[in-house]
């Protein structure tokens, strides 16, 4: 068995342990903040890649689930006083329900129509956030902070503990998503991406598979939003704006769509660029745009796509393949 679930769990456990121990030997507040934001974006972008890379569905509206996750969680915590795990679970239910309704309409469409309709739904959610001032605070966002009562001895108001929780959510989320793409379902999703007509001839219920993928992607995108709302202790309209979807598309383009970890690598690149570029210039958008162009025109794909291709074409690998024959 190439990728067993147990192997993923072991690697995940090692990764979490390493991430948890790292600040003990290298106490750096900037790194902790960077990792929490990274966890949020990496889950968000990897969930988009479930659709783009594995399903061939380019969504321009995936940010709606990030925003929805942040706002649902924030509102539940502010208004109901429930515990964090309960609000987290309920947020997943809300995101899944919305993804089911939106997906049922969108996934019937192909390519550019799918992209634009998802964008339309995203802008609908954004307008709702802006206009429904009594609930969402309008363009001011959810202010006054999100209460973060401790549960099971875990206090997420403490940055260290939030860091650990983010790492656990990140690794857990990645393990689950990796399992999804390596499951029979994941391969059916690839079949649809490659050749939906033939897949249908073979008995695949294309609509149902795409819809389930859309809902799963929505859930993990929402979890990314929850981490962000815990990090900033609030929720702001830009979480639900189209620029959020744009960031995820950027990350996926930077990191690559043909490897599972592409979006994680893309997240690190984008966040580093973000931190470095803003330190030196106010023309952040211009610089970032130029770098994206460099990737698109120079590498013609994301970084991990490029590296994977380079690796496969390397003389050493080709020779090994020949010996394998």
């Amino acid at each position: 068995m190439r990728h067993s679930f147990r192997r993923d769990m072991i690697i995940g456990a090692i990764a979490v342990t390493a991430l948890v121990l790292l600040p003990l030997v290298w106490p750096n507040k900037a790194f902790i903040d960077f990792t929490i934001r990274g966890a949020s974006f990496a889950l968000f972008a990897t969930s988009l890649n479930l659709l783009v890379g594995y399903g061939g569905m380019v969504s321009f509206g995936h940010g709606m689930f990030f925003g929805l996750g942040a706002y649902s969680f924030g509102l539940l915590m502010q208004r109901t006083g429930m515990s964090i795990p309960a609000a987290f679970a309920l947020t997943i239910v809300v995101t899944a329900a919305v993804a089911l309704a939106v997906g049922a309409i969108c996934v019937r469409l192909k390519e550019i129509y799918f992209a634009f309709l998802t964008l339309a739904f995203q802008m609908f959610l954004y307008s709702l956030v802006i206009l429904w001032v009594p609930l969402t605070g309008g363009d001011q966002g959810l202010r006054g902070g999100i209460p973060r009562p401790s549960f099971l001895g875990i206090d997420l108001a403490d940055q260290r503990q939030l860091y650990i929780a983010s790492c656990v959510l990140l690794v857990g989320g990645l393990i689950l998503m990796h399992h999804i793409v390596e499951s029979p379902f994941g391969y059916t999703l690839r079949m649809i991406r490659d050749n939906a007509t033939r897949a249908a001839f073979l008995g695949v219920e294309v609509f149902r598979i795409k819809l389930v993928a859309f809902v799963l992607a929505g859930i993990f995108g929402g979890i990314g939003g929850v981490i962000m709302s815990l990090f900033v202790s609030g929720a702001y309209p830009e979480f639900a704006n189209w620029t959020m979807s744009g960031e995820a598309v950027f990350i996926v383009m930077l990191g690559g769509i043909s490897t599972f970890f592409g979006p994680v690598v893309g997240t690190v690149i984008l966040l580093l660029l973000n931190d470095v570029v803003t330190r030196f210039t106010e023309y952040y958008g211009l610089t970032l745009g130029a770098i994206i162009l460099l990737f698109a025109l120079g590498l013609r794909r994301g970084l991990t796509d490029f590296l994977l291709d380079y690796w496969r074409r390397s003389p050493w690998v080709l020779a090994a393949a020949k010996r394998g024959r």
Partner: peptide, 17 residues
Amino acid sequence: AAVQAHRGRAAVLDRRF
């Protein structure tokens, strides 16, 4: 993948391909 689709196992999520 084709055999699994033909046998109605295309949406199995709790196992590996």
